[in-house]
Design a binder for these strands. Structure first.
Lengths: 343, 343
DNA sequence: CTTGTTTTCCAAAACGTTTTGGATTATTAT
DNA sequence: ATAATAATCCAAAACGTTTTGGAAAACAAG
């Protein structure tokens, strides 16, 4: 059986209270007894029972993260890195990370209710915001501390803490890069419309066009589902109907890789006859042939920051609890983009 | 404030005991009162306090997994998938997954003591066993249920549950494939020697040679650190000193990708002038140029199985608590291996 | 009308900790 | 020596649940 305060109390002759206070470092226990008690605790191999502590203190020192179903049906580098960043920061603050997964068929919010409502965690982290995100609404109504990676529509009030990467800027940089290479007809393979970041990326596309005084053509835009196959199929669709396109921006690397495959099937030399860029800089991007020009977001570090922010909020260390941070992504130029041969 | 049994008791006029037993479905409470109590619980939005339950029942319904430092300094598909498999199975059993990370500088075992000794979890999962694995020894001494993905040296007693992939068989299949393509001089880039699976893979290499009556040459073997750079450097080393080598087996895909790069730098056409194969089938393997022949292990499914096994062990559902499962990996043939041009 | 049985309920203890509000003893000041 | 102060200590309550071991009420059998 595990050693408890009671055992130490019995072994030392002091009360449970004194043992507790001795180990906790209170000043109302003499150095002599403290050392005595500490020695016995050490000898017996005492380790505090975290559950009892949680119950008494009404704090779990645990933060929660729910993995959406999509994250584990597909290999998802994003969630993997994000989670590791969170775990790393959490452990520096001596917090635990409780991981939930969304079960097929369950309402998304069920997993959150389990974590929050049943007192498993002190706060939650959410990512990949959707329009009218249920999770934000639920967490706000339940008064649970939470930090978001991502934003809502600009029209919603952002009275909560978030960290986001400026994906408008990211796509805009990519557009500048392509335009500077001479491309004038640039296709866009969007991420699903329910994702909030899709809006911001579309904005980046538009801003990029506007800055170069190029017209916005709706027919250059298609909507994908983030998977390789989708990028592959949509590239064929796009190039079939709009053959004048010389460059394609995909909203994630997986779709960009599919896009490369489609272009190559059409006999196009990617990086020469057509330029393709992705978003995320996954591991495979560097190993693709040609290697993929893309936009990198420091996901691990964002995870760390999000966790740190949440813990500060839980412990009320920062008075502002609706802190907003917007990070800049970086353009990684590789071989899949090159000068426009038609210019 | 959260609604407790006390609140329901007060609101319904029954005692806390009866409320508890009504909600738990005991037969010693009449249907009428049960319905009454359930209605009130529903109305008040009662959710049981998991911490109090844990304390009272002395069970956490939580399993723990510690990510080694290496897993988050490098993007690690293995741990990501493994963890998601675990999380998925755990949630089907209504268990939680608590994630720890090993902090730089801390002894490996500290994170385990925290989880187990401080009662955070009912059982642990460990992976990537090393020789004389401290973790196995600790968990056995602390009487904690645990399941291992991987084995120890064959010489050690395996009086604990594990699931492993037969990597001897995996490498052996790879060797057969290469030998059937005519290769006679096959280099091996090993994983670090402290990893137990390295032994099994080396055995597969030897078995493959023996089966084809080829001599074992120590000078065809080099030891890498699993990173791309290491595969790159060691391939140069190997081909500098043993130019007769026409095929290389790397113990993971990252090293194999480095190996491809090195070979290409030497003007070799991978898949023609030289054959290279990896192990793991990471996402990038399919996107490499040439695409990488490799050995696939169903990591997500293994995670699921390991978790299910652990939970059964925790709940003493299976009498045998040292169940052993050895799964077969599958060879995925792609472009990086081809007929030996020297044969 | 007893007696025995079944149904329905509940007070109290327990899980291991922290905190509250003193109580006791030792020390210092007068 | 006495009063005031400081230094140590501790009993009891609390966190929210489950379980134990009955008690009371309702019902059935004799």
């Amino acid at each position: 059986m595990a050693v408890t305060l009671k055992d130490i109390a019995k072994a030392s002759g002091y009360s449970i209270t004194t043992v507790s206070r001795a180990l906790a470092g209170y000043s109302d226990v003499s150095e002599k007894t403290r050392n005595h008690i500490k020695a016995i605790a050490e000898k017996l191999g005492y380790q505090p029972n975290h559950i009892a502590r949680q119950l008494r203190s009404q704090k779990t020192r645990t933060i929660g993260l729910i993995l959406p179903e999509a994250a584990y049906t597909a290999t998802d580098e994003f969630f993997s890195l994000f989670m590791m960043g969170i775990g790393h920061a959490a452990s520096l603050y001596h917090y635990d990370l409780l991981l939930g997964v969304q079960i097929t068929g369950d309402d998304e919010i069920v997993a959150y209710q389990r974590m929050v409502g049943e007192n498993r965690v002190d706060g939650m982290i959410i990512a990949r915001t959707k329009h009218h995100d249920q999770r934000v609404a639920y967490l706000q109504s339940s008064q649970t501390p939470f930090v978001v990676f991502g934003r809502l529509d600009p029209s919603h009030p952002h009275n909560f803490a978030y960290i986001d990467v400026d994906s408008t800027l990211g796509i805009q940089c990519g557009m500048e890069h392509l335009i500077s290479l001479g491309h004038r007809h640039i296709g866009l393979i969007l991420s699903p419309l329910e994702m909030v970041y899709t809006d911001y990326r579309l904005q980046g596309y538009q801003k990029g066009l506007t800055a170069a005084q190029l017209p916005f053509r709706e027919e250059y835009i298609v909507v994908g589902d983030l998977k390789t196959e989708s990028g592959y199929a949509l590239t064929h669709t796009l190039l079939d109907s709009q053959p004048q396109i010389t460059a394609i921006v995909a909203c994630n690397d997986h779709m960009a890789l599919g896009s490369i495959k489609a272009a190559q099937e059409r006999g196009l030399r990617v990086g020469h006859d057509i330029s393709i860029m992705g978003y995320d800089d996954i591991v495979a991007a560097a190993h693709a042939h040609p290697s993929l020009t893309t936009i990198r977001q420091p996901i691990f570090e964002i995870g760390e920051q999000v966790a740190a922010l949440l813990i500060q909020q839980i412990e009320k260390l920062n008075s502002i609890n609706a802190q907003h941070t917007l990070l800049e992504p970086t353009l990684v130029v590789r071989e899949s983009t090159g000068p426009c041969i038609h210019s």
